[in-house]
Design a protein around this nucleic acid. Sequence first.
DNA 1: TTCCATGTTCCGCA
DNA 2: TTGCGGAACATGGA
Length: 262
Amino acid sequence: MPELPDVAGFARYLEKTVLHQTVSRTHVPDERILSGVTRRQLAARLKHRQLAATHRHGKYLLLELDDGAHLVLHFGMTGRLAAWRRDGADPDDIKVLWDLEDGWHLAYTCQRLLGEVGYARDRARFVSSQSLGPDALDPDLTEDRFLALMEGRRGTTKGLLMNQSVIAGLGNVYSDEILFQAGIRPGRKVDRLSAQERRELYRVLRRVLTTACERGDAVADQPDSWLIHRRDEDQECPRCGGTLRADTVIGRTSYWCPSCQD
DNA sequence: TTCCATGTTCCGCA
DNA sequence: TTGCGGAACATGGA
């Protein structure tokens, strides 16, 4: 599930629970989740460090420490965070567990091991090392800049939206939502979009993500008129009542309405 | 048993 | 060079 709005929700969750607390111990039951660090290195670098601030870039959550370095969290398809007090029950699928100095615990859980936990000294350097494009909600990502990103691209519009090195933060679900609300078929080639459609795509992208982040990360929190509630075979289009289609575009199941999207 | 899943990455090919 | 399809990764549910 975790796309930009979900990761934004994780960041808020950390702010409400364990932010500003200090790590006393890092336990890594399954080292396969680590990327670029060993469990010994991670434990040593986090020991006695305070969790100072949250940052998000696309689907990455960067938890800044009081020495300026960052704990890097990526959630894959099944990554989650859980924080609890002393005698709370442990969640399932814990891949990394942090004990904090005042009795709280923070767990990174991941059922399918497709996420990763890492460590990065410098945030900007990390973003460029991952070849990530601008965050989809970056205030500096203006309409003009977005239009420039689309220039010269020949693939599908859905492929563009999901390409993290072009724009960071969108996955399968939210790209379908944005394309639905913009009235553009997932398989439409970028170079066949009119100037008006390109501008509309930008506006809808920002509106959908802003709304989703404000409402919370649960699908049920999103407006009833959204496609997100109807990602299943033979569902009705929330706009025209027609039958939605499910096609494979750039290798992912894509839901769309043949009457509302062109 | 087989297929599918909201994540990324790599390879071969057009 | 860009982008696509397919496979791979690991696991569980329909």
